[in-house]
Nucleic acid binder design. Structure first.
Length: 427
RNA sequence: GGGGGGAUACCAGAGCGGUCAAAUGGGGCGGACUGUAAAUCCGCUGCUUCGGCUACGAAGGUUCGAAUCCUUCUCCCCCCA
């Protein structure tokens, strides 16, 4: 199956420039996707782009991952309603290093002719002077053309306006494409559907400057079936970096996908073939409450991102926290085992001496720890029946805890809502 | 340069002298139902030692009393030149 067909049946394809498929069918081609260094880790949203590159490579093509050291300094206006804050050079460098390390885990950089390659556009922009840029690049693209782009139009007709810096972004990205086309024979740029305008500026630039041919392909923006934004939870973004999103939280994120979402995610984020996926769906439909689909999805991605061992730990934690195992089960474990079981959930350390004298729930959850940001909020949630300690619902905000409430003389397990656990360690 | 409009909680957006910690919608959080879904319904959504305290762009002023009236300042938008 060729690359485009692959994306198509998985529901990933959004838009493709005419001729692209024919070109790819002729043999190995090089293509790239740019990654934004706005943070030092990629998140599940970027994972979709990584998957595109993986499919590209599996179809026998040569994938390039571009990290935007230069474009990161400018800021992409696409999909943004307000001017972006610029990152300092140091922060940018730090972010680039983090992202590079992650990309290396997904693509094969040593498989011969179609080995993946990583490039940083800062390398070709750092010595590019402003005058050279406006003469060699700016001259080929009219302002009229740039103004017609949705990302620009939206901002100009909106309230916030747009700086010259962001306006020029599409030229900078357009030049990236030209540079890679010229020096690396990169003939295709891919990206999320919000990147179409930027990518096409690149193909246009290549055509006008060197009368060259280059192609564009974009993938569907991932949306949840309820319309809300993909990749965010109460805790914020879901990151690939285990220090930012623990493997347990990562596993939980996928496990919690709704049925509809799971059906689309499993096509996008796993490499299972069509038959396997359809079989899983059939199985899921006969007993939806077992959530076979979500489990298969969560397992596959967690193993690929964090490894088998972390997946096993996430499963164990999940089974305990959401299973029917009673809290007494903890008594059978030693301290290290308990801490490991809770390794994915936020934990706090409180002095044992203070607890001996008794600590009220409000102080415990809002002062000694930051389970709640204020006592007022803790109180309200308790009144709404949303707080448990050691799996027992708190009924009054005056309840006091002391050493006799400890599990293994060391722990308290707090819950906010059903899904949010916190481990309080007393020492 | 001239004229006009505006700035309210996370966002949008009412309020235009007391009854305003501020309508309504969205978002968020919590509860019920359930499959740790979806949909639906319900509650909460400034802090507090529960006496109060701090809040409606900023600083002053009028008033017993201001988000609401006046003055100055800052920022934004629109029209004309």
């Amino acid at each position: 199956m060729n690359f485009v067909e692959e994306l198509r049946w998985r529901g990933m394809l959004h838009d493709i420039m005419p001729g692209t498929e024919d070109l790819l069918n002729k043999g190995m081609a090089s293509g790239y996707i740019g990654f934004d260094p706005t943070a030092d880790s990629l998140h599940v949203g970027s994972l979709a782009q990584i998957m595109t590159l993986i499919h590209f490579q599996r179809a026998g093509h040569k994938p390039y991952a571009l990290v935007g050291g230069a474009t990161g300094m400018v800021g992409d206006p696409s999909g943004k309603s307000a001017e972006r804050n610029l990152l300092s050079e140091d922060a940018l460098q730090h972010n680039l290093n983090g992202i590079k390390g992650q990309l290396e885990k997904f693509l094969d950089f040593e498989c011969g002719a179609n080995s993946a390659k990583m490039v940083n556009n800062y390398d070709w922009f750092k010595d590019f002077t402003f005058l050279d840029f406006i003469r060699d690049v700016g001259k080929h693209i009219t302002v009229n053309y740039m103004m017609a782009k949705d990302s620009v139009k939206n901002r100009i007709s909106g309230d916030t306006g747009m700086s010259f810096t962001e306006f020029s972004y599409q030229l900078v990205q357009g030049y990236d494409f030209y540079y890679l086309w010229k020096h690396e024979n990169c003939i295709l740029q891919m990206g999320g559907s919000d990147q179409w305008g930027n990518i096409v500026t690149g193909t246009e630039f290549i055509r006008r400057k060197d009368a060259g041919e280059a192609y564009a392909l974009t993938t569907q923006l991932i949306k949840k079936s309820d319309g809300s934004k993909f990749g965010k939870t109460e805790g914020g973004n879901i990151w690939l970096d285990p220090a930012k999103t623990s493997p347990y939280q990562f596993y939980q994120f996928w496990l919690n996908a709704s049925d509809d979402d799971a059906k689309s995610y499993i096509r996008i984020f796993t490499l299972f073939d069509k038959e396997t996926i359809e079989a899983l769906e059939a199985e899921h439909n006969t007993a939806p409450h077992l959530r076979v689909l979500q489990k298969a999805l969560a397992k596959d991605i967690t193993v690929r991102v964090h490894g088998e061992a972390e997946y096993e730990k996430a499963i164990k934690s999940s089974e305990f926290l959401f299973g029917s195992t009673g809290i007494e089960f903890l008594n059978e474990l030693n301290d290290a085992e308990v801490i490991s079981l809770f390794s994915g959930v936020p934990n706090y350390t409180v002095s044992l001496a203070e607890l001996t004298g008794g600590i009220g729930v409000l102080d415990l959850l809002a002062v000694k720890t930051t389970v709640f940001p204020s006592k007022g909020e803790a109180k309200k949630t308790i009144q709404g029946g949303g707080v448990s300690i050691n799996r027992v619902k708190i009924v009054a905000d005056t309840e006091v805890f002391n050493a006799s409430n400890l599990i293994n003389n060391k722990f308290l397990v707090a819950q906010k809502g059903k899904k949010n656990y916190y481990l309080i360690i007393l020492e």
